[in-house]
């Protein structure tokens, strides 16, 4: 999805990060249509949680300008490479839009951080950050992206950028694309039968014989266990 398209759908609260919307009227201020009822597919919620999610989904916090700025920042922080898409391809701005509503403690630092950034870029270029050229944007980022090297007067920017970096990376690596990129191979039924031999070898390790003798023989995992009176396993 193009960044622009994705943002548009984000603002109308439509298909975003696994969200489903029943009814499709855009939620604008003057809109008099029946309000849409955004819903999530089930993920094991109890009643109180369902009510909380529904409430958060129906709210809006960040405005269009803020969301667009976030999208620009997300892709500077995590651009696409030959194999994987960018943060916006992984719908990170949608994730951040939700998190900021769900975690009120994020609201002031994110809103204020964007305002700081715009104020700073206005001073330098008389342009809002998102309207700056890529070169100008990166130059600003360079001045706030390296903790410990930031000019004292730019510290608020550094704080904001660090927050954005964290949210972008966590949003990405908890997305389907990011997990593939990371190479996490679990979360599926399987049988653990020890560290692969080649990995042990690579690390110069091996299982002790006495230890292995205690471990489960996976061919017996479905046999019903029985013990003698001492507690020795018979099966």
């Amino acid at each position: 999805m193009k960044r622009r398209d994705s943002l548009k759908t984000l603002l109308v609260g439509s298909v975003a990060g696994g969200l489903m919307v029943s009814g499709c009227a855009p939620r604008t201020e003057k809109d008099t249509n029946v309000p849409e009822v955004p819903q999530l597919p089930g993920y094991g919620r109890n009643e109180a949680e369902k009510a909380h999610d529904a409430k958060v989904l129906a709210e809006s916090f960040l405005n269009e300008h803020e969301l667009e700025t976030i999208a620009v920042l997300c892709d500077i922080i995590l651009p696409s490479n030959a194999e994987f898409g960018s943060a916006t391809d992984a719908e990170v701005p949608e994730f951040i839009a939700f998190i900021v509503k769900d975690m009120p403690r994020q609201q002031l630092p994110i809103r204020g951080g964007i305002a700081w950034l715009d104020n700073h870029s206005n001073k330098l270029h008389n342009l809002a950050f998102k309207a700056c050229s890529e070169e100008q944007q990166k130059a600003i980022c360079d001045s706030i992206a390296w903790p410990g090297k930031t000019a004292p007067e730019l510290i608020p920017g550094e704080r904001f950028f660090t927050r954005m970096r964290n949210l972008t990376l966590t949003g990405y690596f908890t997305s389907e694309m990011g997990i593939k990129d990371l190479g996490y191979e679990g979360n599926r039924p399987g049988v653990w039968d020890g560290v692969p031999d080649e990995v042990l070898k690579e690390h110069g390790l091996s299982y002790e014989k006495e230890w292995l003798a205690k471990c489960i023989d996976q061919s017996k995992r479905t046999e019903i266990a029985q013990w003698d009176e001492e507690g020795n396993l018979l099966t």
Partner: peptide, 28 residues
Amino acid sequence: MGMPSYGFGFNPNDLNKITGGSIGGYGD
């Protein structure tokens, strides 16, 4: 190597402090 969830990826290169790289930044 556990499954990521919220918080995974925060301070992504703090360990550079130990291995000698720089901390922070952006990009691929």
